[in-house]
Design a protein around this nucleic acid. Sequence first.
DNA 1: GCCAACGTTGGC
DNA 2: GCCAACGTTGGC
Length: 156
Amino acid sequence: MTSYWLVKSEPGSYSIDDLRSEGATWWTGVRNYQARNFLQNMKKGDHVLFYHSNSEPPGIAGLASVIATAEADETQFDRKGEYFDPKATKEKPRWFCPQIRFVKEFKQVIGLADIKKQKGLASMELVRQGSRLSVQPVTEQEFEIIAAIAKSLKDK
DNA sequence: GCCAACGTTGGC
DNA sequence: GCCAACGTTGGC
C-alpha cells in the first residue's frame, strides 16, 4: 500500500530547488518523536508533498518520493553539528531518516491560504491551528486534490 | 508524576 | 515583531 506524506522545510535552509539539483537526499535533522515515527513508517514508493514553511507564501512547492526506508540519522552523532544528540549512540540511535528524491516542482507554490479554502482539505493536519508537526501523514484523497490543483496551475 | 518556566515553530 | 500552540526540561 502506497502511503502519502507531507514534509516541511524552510526554503532558506533546504528548498525544493535544492532537492531538484541534488536529485535525492536523506531527510535528516528531524528531532520530534511524533515526526520521527512517521519517518520510520515511510516506505519506498510513497508520495511526499514538499512544503515550504517560513516563506512567502508558505505552501506546497512540489512533490518528492521515498526511495529508501529510514536509517540512523548520522547528524545525531556529529558533536559539532546543529543536530547533535548527546543521548544517542551508534548502538542505540534515537533519530532516523528516509531517503527521498525529487519528483516535480509546481509551477507556483500552492499557498497555505488557498489550501485552507479548499473544502476537501479542511481536515489536513497542516490546516490545524498551530500545527507545528514537520512530518505528517496525508490521505490519498488529500494528495489527489493537491495534485489536481497543481495540474491546473498556469506557468508564471 | 506534576506542572511552571522556557524554547521553538511558524503563520500572520 | 507578535504571539498561539505545543514540546521539553527540571525542580519538587
